[in-house]
Design a binder for these strands. Sequence first.
RNA 1: GCCCCCAUGGUCUAGUGGUCAGGACGCCUCCCUUUCACGGAGGAGAUCGCCGGUUCGAGCCCGGCUGGGGGUACCA
Length: 450
Amino acid sequence: MRVRFPPSPTGALHIGGARTALYNWLLAHGPAAQAEAGRRGTLVLRIEDTDRERSTEANVAQIIDALSWLGLDWDEGPISQIANTPRHRMALAQLLADGHAYHSTADAEVVRAYKERHGADRGFRGTPEADGAVRLRVPDEGVTSFVDLVRGELSFPNASMDDPIIARADGSVLYNFAVAVDDLDEGITHVVRGEDHISNTPKQLLVFKALGAEPPLYAHLPMLLGPDGKKLSKRHGAASVQELRERGYLPEAVNNYIALLGTGFAPDEEFFTMDEMAQRFRLERVSRSPAVFDEQKLRHINGMHLRALPPEELTRRLEAFTGRSGLGAAVEISREKIQTLADFWPLAGFIFDGPRDDPAAFAKVVGAEGARDVLGEVRRRLAALERFDAAAVERELRAVVDARGLKPGQVFQPLRVAIAGRTVSPGIFETVALLGRERTVALIDRALSS
RNA sequence: GCCCCCAUGGUCUAGUGGUCAGGACGCCUCCCUUUCACGGAGGAGAUCGCCGGUUCGAGCCCGGCUGGGGGUACCA
């Protein structure tokens, strides 16, 4: 089995592209490839840069960086499509010579006029000219059909298809032609791509036929949509892989989530490692309907992956993410409370940089009836504590709760705001223990004197 | 306009002719350290897009309609 991922370097790698890359990766690493050849499949990375206007090296680098971050490694490539130009020209000359293609100066205007004469459902058929762009000759009758591995048989009436332009007047080839030639040359066996390519497939099939070659198998994945039901784009916030990374998501979680979007792996589970996903992945199980990208659920899945990481590993990633070091102990007491890497600093940063005061919270909680009195007693008890660990701190704080007949929150919250400056923090006992007696007492004094 | 694809709670999905349509995210209530998150116990939320048909019986099969989406570039 040979599959490919062919991004066009006209922008960053978007979530839809990452999904396509992931599914190809899963296919190549899964049991289907194994059963077919006794070893896993080969993934080819091809850069579709035939659009010279919009393709840039920076985008290529960015896409490769995003794929690497996701852990989606490839076996061959990156192959620059533009580097295959000689071969494309050769194939084009062959079709021209065979009469499968012809030069035509007909532009959109001419095509429109043609349809006015012959009916909107009649595909444009040109007459060979001496120069102009190159069009592929589509049969007048019959259908071009194929069995889509996720949708079943798809069929297109030839009569309604325009003769597609496969090369510009300057001889440079266009997408539908280059792709077919490259898929053929690279021995691609399975083309797995987005639904937006469904109507390109018959054109490419016709190119294979004109070349006298056997086409690969095709599978079209459903579209990924934004919360508004429209195609996912930058307008929906985090649309690129790079942005997801900057927002503190883990690559394993991103992979897990986008795999879930559009495939029902298992009835009751949603947490999967790459290996588990590759084992379970089946093209036939891929959903046919478009899916809405839901960041809330990504957050949830990300939290699961975060907590599944060994503490040292989580610490390493958090240190890389925040650019700080010595985070170990704080990470230990925060790991149950964060869902993304970006959640950590706002939650526990005060342990290192001191409180970031939220005046409203301060006024409300520390300024509450009896709160200062409670804080005073908490201070006395903690100051007198011999062993300053989480268990001892908890004992003292609960003693205050019991002695005064208060609710736990009436004691814990003022203390939390005193040491963190806000109502959000890791567990109060562990946090106080980590801060130590000196700093805790000083922070309480600071709150009391404010 | 034309060609094509799709349609189960707000979202992702399970379900392939016969249990009260199951799970997850989110939401609500309660508990856990009145926040955040995790975990636990409950709850609200779906006339399975609509109309016909096939069948003793349809979310599952067929047809039509409606709605959404993709394509319709000398872009990919």
